[in-house]
Design a protein around this nucleic acid. Structure first.
Lengths: 248, 248
DNA sequence: CTCTACATTTGACGCCGCGTCAAAAAATGA
DNA sequence: TCATTTTTTGACGCGGCGTCAAATGTAGAG
């Protein structure tokens, strides 16, 4: 009885702790996106959460740890979107296009966090974050690559089903391509001056070129980015709604 | 006469200033690569150059400015390699493969600097660097894209020469792909666990898939990464020699 | 060679942000 | 109600960034 009460109390504490983890991350992300990295101080996060600095440090051992958690959460969200896309009921081309859209939308919803990924993954930075965060970050890559392989598995190329080698090549190529496009699109690359009035279409067409190279059968339903975008906005409507960020 | 002497003195000063610009960047890069970003302090840079902090600040107005210059220089080096690759006397496939190799080698030679690119390009960061550095950084993107377009211009696709639209799509796709591969390969992505014992080959094959998609005629001389690598090491031997970094 | 005027370099200092920890406050339980 | 344990707090120490008055160096004129 008293034991049960103890457990219940501990459960509640546990839950409160997890909720506060989230609260801190939310505040940090808001500050990051609103004022930029250099204004993101532990003090500011503490003020916004209405806790004191000491309490923040009970959750994240240092600033790097906090940023690592932010990036990890962003990665988890990406994986969530990718999973939705990968299980979409349609052609391989459709799935892959939607997965690319997942990259794009995730990067767009969390521009500032995305731009920290490379920094967080540097060896120097990584050794300051908690060990469990490190494995979390690594699992994200694993999961993305696994999803890509799964998606290409069983796909019909020009000479029958893709071989294991081809599947991995395709997954690797798609992965790096999506990542790069993410950078090019969402970071401060000066793409507008380069004549990309409609960069998403470039996005779609380069992907098409790649999938053509694999010999994937065409999908007559999806002939432009608009087609993909329409589906993506339906599929990701829940996640997109959560983000009040105004696109420019 | 005295006017001439004055000019000569000023020229000398100018030259010394530029030399010191370089010295500072070299020291900063050495510290960055050896000890990581968090150990890269202005004081440490000053100590290494054997000047005082104040003098460093005469060259770079703040730490961001210094890092911006580092990234810009890294970008310039990349453009240099890309230009060499773009003027290589061979098929379009060969040129493109070598240009991709340029990305790869540049990233590899300057891993730590490369991992700062996204951060430096963030709006928040960018507004702290000198205006002329900003335009320098933007011109790098312009130049890379221009080189890519030039390389694809006149290439023979499956249905005759590539159209202007196809050229730009190809350039965009290649660009984002190379950038992404650069990230995937050179940053701390956990690729080794994913079964890429030989990641460069994946690199080459995904590029091949993309170029196949464009319908480019094959190059019988270049059938594996080894072929590309051999040429790249010749072509970039000068730049590669300058970098004493031991590959792992 | 000396003196003056101008240019350059220096490093002590102020400020701010990170991370700590002893003390205060709150929760628990008897 | 009070003792014990847990949690929160924010003042403080430290170190890095960037400044600026003073020191040092340089160049030309007399």
């Amino acid at each position: 009885m008293s034991n049960l009460g103890l457990n219940r109390a501990q459960d509640r504490k546990q839950k409160e702790r997890l909720e506060r983890d989230e609260l801190i991350l939310n505040c940090a992300q808001t500050l990051l996106q609103r004022d930029g990295l250099h204004k993101l101080t532990m003090q500011a996060v503490a003020a916004m959460t209405e806790y004191s600095k000491g309490t923040i440090y009970q959750h994240y051992h240092c600033k790097e740890d906090l940023l690592g958690a932010l990036v990890a959460r962003c990665g988890d969200k990406l994986v969530g979107l990718l999973q939705k896309a990968a299980t979409y009921d349609g052609s391989v081309r459709a799935k892959v296009a939607l997965m690319s859209a997942a990259f794009f939308y995730n990067g767009r919803m969390q521009r500032e966090v995305s731009s920290l990924v490379a920094m967080v993954k540097s060896e120097d930075f990584l050794q300051k974050v908690q060990a469990d965060q490190q494995t979390r970050l690594k699992n994200i890559d694993n999961e993305i690559f696994r999803l890509a392989c799964t998606t290409f598995y069983g796909a019909q190329g020009s000479k029958g089903k893709l071989t294991t080698q081809e599947i991995m090549d395709a997954a690797f190529g798609w992965w790096s391509m999506s990542w790069g496009i993410n950078d090019v699109m969402n970071q401060n690359w000066d793409i507008k001056r380069l004549g990309f009035s409609d960069p998403m279409s470039f996005y779609f067409r380069s992907l098409t070129i790649f999938l053509d190279g694999l010999g994937l059968e065409p999908d007559s339903q999806l002939t432009s980015w608009n087609d993909v975008d329409a589906i993506a906005q339906m599929l990701f409507s829940h996640e997109l709604a959560q983000c009040s960020d105004t696109p420019n």
